[in-house]
């Protein structure tokens, strides 16, 4: 029974994940005084890509073909560990909070390899930059996880997401986790999803060679990863209040941030992540102090 509920939760989240991206785009466009595409545009994109012919570079190997499936598998597998609608609704016997970081790294590893596989300089550049950014994201993510888990007394997500009293350190950790989310979902100021100027993009450069169904899978995986991070902040790190409301707040914050600042240079992004590292260390210190 519980397994069925969890599976329903996963499928539901996968189903709404493109919608979240659509809403963010809509908000951004409206703030910029544009009408913008429908919030369902990401679904149309996916449907279009699924029907399209796929072009595969002749220098690629099986890594290139397998990577979209691996990245989707890792996103969904990580998503199944996150309790969203109730604190027990996750496969907690499969893994804990720390495992999510590792499982997402699997997908990234394969996409980065696929970026190198086509032999174009763009893909290599994208892979190099993506791994570079994610390397500095890793300690921030870990310390944020540590801070909230220390408050809960366990890295078990059910324990972490069970409301136990509002702690200051959890709120600080959610701030650093927000920066992690920005970096992991390739958003401004770390990366820009909308750019198609080859020299400035990170994630988009890495998947430049993909088309058709493979690209659809990679995009779906990105949507899922985004929902995963948003629900981590909304349901796990701050487990009080209405989930839909908190989700809306995170979506609004991301959209506002994207329209209000410019993309940073690659090495400025490291400064941002160092700043996030300091915040996450603060979270651990505040948690050690008992708040």
């Amino acid at each position: 029974m519980k397994t069925a509920l969890i599976l329903i939760q996963i499928l539901l989240l996968i189903a709404v994940s493109p919608l979240v991206s659509g809403i963010i785009r809509k908000i951004k466009n409206n703030i910029r005084m544009r009408k913008g595409a429908s919030v369902f545009q990401p679904y149309y994109n996916l449907a279009k890509l699924f029907g399209k012919e796929e072009v595969v570079s002749d220098t690629t190997s099986w890594i290139f073909k397998a990577a979209p499936f691996v990245v989707l598998a890792s996103s969904v597998c990580a998503l199944s560990l996150v309790p969203v609608f109730a604190s027990t609704l996750s496969f907690s016997n499969m893994g804990d909070f720390l495992a999510i970081i590792f499982i997402l790294a699997l997908g990234r590893f394969f996409v980065a390899l696929a970026g190198l596989d086509a032999g174009s300089a763009f893909g290599g550049m994208g892979s190099s930059r993506e791994m570079f950014i994610s390397t500095f994201v890793e300690p921030v993510a870990l310390l944020s996880v540590f801070a909230v888990s220390l408050n809960a007394g366990s890295t078990n997500l059910a324990a972490v997401s069970a409301p136990a009293g509002l702690k200051l350190s959890s709120i600080i950790a959610s701030l650093s986790l927000f920066v992690v989310t920005i970096a992991e979902t390739s958003r401004i100021p770390v990366d820009n999803q909308e750019t198609h100027l080859e020299l400035t993009m990170i994630h988009e450069a890495m998947v430049l060679e993909y088309s058709g169904k493979s690209l659809a899978l990679i995009e779906l995986a990105s949507h899922i990863k985004q929902v995963l991070f948003f629900s981590l902040i909304a349901a796990v790190v701050i487990p009080w209040g209405d989930f839909a409301l908190k989700m809306a707040a995170v979506i609004a914050a991301v959209s506002l941030l994207e329209v209000s600042i410019a993309k940073m240079r690659l090495f400025r992004a490291v400064d941002l992540l160092s700043f996030a590292l300091v915040i996450s260390i603060m979270a651990v210190i505040v948690s050690a102090a008992g708040y």
Binding site: A105, A112, L113, G115, L116, S128, F132, F136, P139
Partner: peptide, 24 residues
């Protein structure tokens, strides 16, 4: 946290090692 940073760097290093040696 430093172990996590090490893990991230190691993953980057092996994307490089495998990608440059075996791919393209």
């Amino acid at each position: 946290a430093m172990l996590a940073l090490t893990g991230g760097l190691a993953a980057s290093c092996f994307v490089k090692a495998f990608g440059v040696t075996f791919l393209a």
